[in-house]
């Protein structure tokens, strides 16, 4: 599901802020926190840390449930 990012409140957000949420990503080269969907297994959303230059993955210090998109 990609990078974990905060979803602005649709009631109070501005169009520019909402489009930033839709389109902008940090696209970090290095360790980043992501939401993944375990499609072929438990079908749960989970949060993972991954180094995008090596694809090494690890559980974050405080593992949590990912969020549906």
């Amino acid at each position: 599901m990609g990078e974990v990012r905060a979803r602005p409140d649709p009631q109070t957000t501005t169009p520019a802020e909402w489009r930033g949420y839709l389109y902008l990503r940090r696209n970090t080269a290095g360790w980043t926190t992501e939401s993944w969907y375990h499609r072929m297994g438990c079908r749960r959303y989970l949060v993972l840390e991954r180094d995008t230059t090596t694809n090494e993955a690890r559980l974050p210090a405080s593992p949590g449930r990912g969020r549906e998109p």
Partner: peptide
Amino acid sequence: GWATTVADMAGVRLPVQT
């Protein structure tokens, strides 16, 4: 592919994913 890392240096955010 490195576009966002360079744009970050100028403080410009791009809707780009590598």
